[in-house]
């Protein structure tokens, strides 16, 4: 975050506003809550198995999105190539997983 100011000498003075820790603590608390929901759903038992699978996967994907967006700065400007690299990596990983599940379950 920069705000450039014209100095009397004609030069450009840079003034930086450093981000505080608040945003990251919010992400941390959000991650803790998602983790607690996932563990509680399993520890409590009695939750329908196929519902639990969907719930757990949604909690995991949400947490990963938030952490990669804020802690790894993927949501910031100028991250098109990193996002592309990660989409590429997750696409191949997902293809491998779907392929082997299909392979095992297809009978």
């Amino acid at each position: 975050m920069t705000t450039d100011q014209q100095t009397p000498q004609g030069g450009v003075k840079h003034r930086y506003r450093h981000e505080g820790p608040q945003k990251h603590i919010v992400v941390f608390i959000f991650s803790i809550v998602l983790t607690l929901i996932a563990f509680a759903a399993v520890a409590a038992g009695g939750v329908n198995a196929s519902f639990a699978v969907i719930l757990l996967l949604v909690m995991a994907v949400l947490q990963v999105f938030v952490q990669m967006g804020y802690w790894m700065h993927l949501k910031d400007k100028g991250h098109m190539l990193p996002i592309l690299f990660m989409i590429g990596g997750f696409f191949v990983a997902g293809t491998c997983i779907i392929m082997s599940l299909y392979w095992v379950w297809w009978d």
């Binding site: 191949v92 990983a93 491998c96």
Partner: peptide, 9 residues
């Protein structure tokens, strides 16, 4: 990500 993806698979 690909490496861990294959191990998860």
């Amino acid at each position: 990500a690909v490496l861990f993806g294959t191990l998860f698979a």
